[in-house]
Write a protein that binds this DNA or RNA. Structure first.
Lengths: 220, 220
DNA sequence: TTTATGTTTTAGGTATATCTAAAATTAAAA
DNA sequence: TTTTAATTTTAGATATACCTAAAACATAAA
């Protein structure tokens, strides 16, 4: 029942993401890369998180997140994504501007604040990048989705999320006119390099590389 | 141009308030009392704030805030008060619940966030306790105001702020029906102990001690 | 003017979160 | 199976922000 510091919360969130929601083990080096800190610092932190029982830590063999850790990580993710919705829906931020600010806001600790914010936003189920917002109890409403590059020729679908939410990628999507919720159809495929052409909302044609398509998630 | 840590921002804000906006010098003990830290910790911090040129620090003789320090303190106060407005106006917090949360939110550093929040709230000039919100440049729109206990018998005025914004005091005001914006008239005064009776909005009579009246600020 | 009192600072210590450099361990290659 | 390479941990520093206990200082009282 011990509470986490800001830094501990950040590490735990990184471990949660790297472990694909607790499914895989995570190495010190992976965490070091994600957190932009040195492996030595990660080792220190893993000992602390192990002591607080939010991860299971076996020296030299990486870590697994515990159920308690998963719960705490999901709370942080919930806050992050709710603040992102607030920034985009209410303060008119664009979806490529929200990450850094939400990274700070997610650490504000007030249960009632998050409950009221959730209510104020109309209990949104997804953030501006299409990622699901866990509820108060950590339950996540997932929807089946697959990378756009895995669709067949002439298949239709709807963009529901992005895998890469870097500002550069999101601005590119803005530029070409791709957005969450857009209805799309694969109108052409280039065998050679896997690039494709899609029709957005039966109006606009977009040509994109396999790399780009792989970072767009669709629901069929 | 160095930036301040959270702790430094908090100390600077305390010094700003204790010095009455930079008008008076402030002692180590005063700061210690306000910050609920030991005088020894304050001495440490004063050295740091002096190094960063936001205060002028002469050992054993207390501190004065510098122009640069005043500017930074006003930025923090601006953020604090804007977030308080947000919490009350948008998230339906009561005015006695907002302080702790705003104390965390005030440290989020994003210029654009505060600009957008200000705009979203309709550029409010006063927070829920009636305190003025400095603009982007640190300019404060003050309005002449005096403690309610200094009004003459039969004088009228309007409640514009509270001096004490502790939850206990604010809940008491809620209970008796006093609020920011209320039009009042002094209908009786007790010479002996300075307690008074006021009529609120020509409807409701409230009897209050001199102590309470002294913490209510009115505009005539 | 010396003494006593209260205030303030310094010295040294703790906890967090980072780092570098060196040592330990695992895993892969010869 | 031994050596090598890569990963990971430990040891020892640094910076922040606090603490306690002791020393230094300013001021008010005798």
């Amino acid at each position: 029942m011990s509470t986490l510091t800001y830094a501990e919360e950040n590490y735990l969130k990184a471990i949660y993401h790297l472990s694909d929601g607790g499914k895989k083990g995570v190495s010190t080096n992976d965490i070091s890369g994600e957190m932009k800190t040195k492996p030595a610092s990660v080792s220190d932190m893993l000992r602390k998180l192990g002591d607080k029982a939010v991860i299971e830590y076996r020296k030299y063999y990486g870590v697994h997140i515990t159920e308690e850790g998963k719960k705490l990580a999901l709370q942080t993710i919930r806050k992050h994504r709710l603040w992102e919705v607030f920034l985009v829906e209410k303060l008119k931020f664009s979806w490529d501007e929200v990450h850094e600010v939400a990274d700070e806001l997610e650490h504000i600790k007030s249960r009632i604040l998050i409950q009221r914010l959730d209510e104020y936003l109309g209990f949104p189920k997804f953030d501006p990048h299409g990622d699901p917002i866990p509820d108060e109890y950590g339950d996540v409403r997932t929807r089946p989705r697959l990378p756009l590059n895995e669709l067949d020729l002439h298949a239709t679908g709807q963009i529901v999320a992005v895998k890469d939410s870097s500002a550069a990628f999101l601005r590119y999507l803005d530029k070409v006119g791709a957005y969450i919720g857009a209805r799309i159809k694969v109108t052409d495929m280039v065998e050679f390099d896997g690039s494709i052409e899609i029709l957005v909302d039966n109006k606009k044609s977009i040509f994109m590389s396999k790399d780009v398509a792989g970072n767009i998630l669709v629901m069929q």
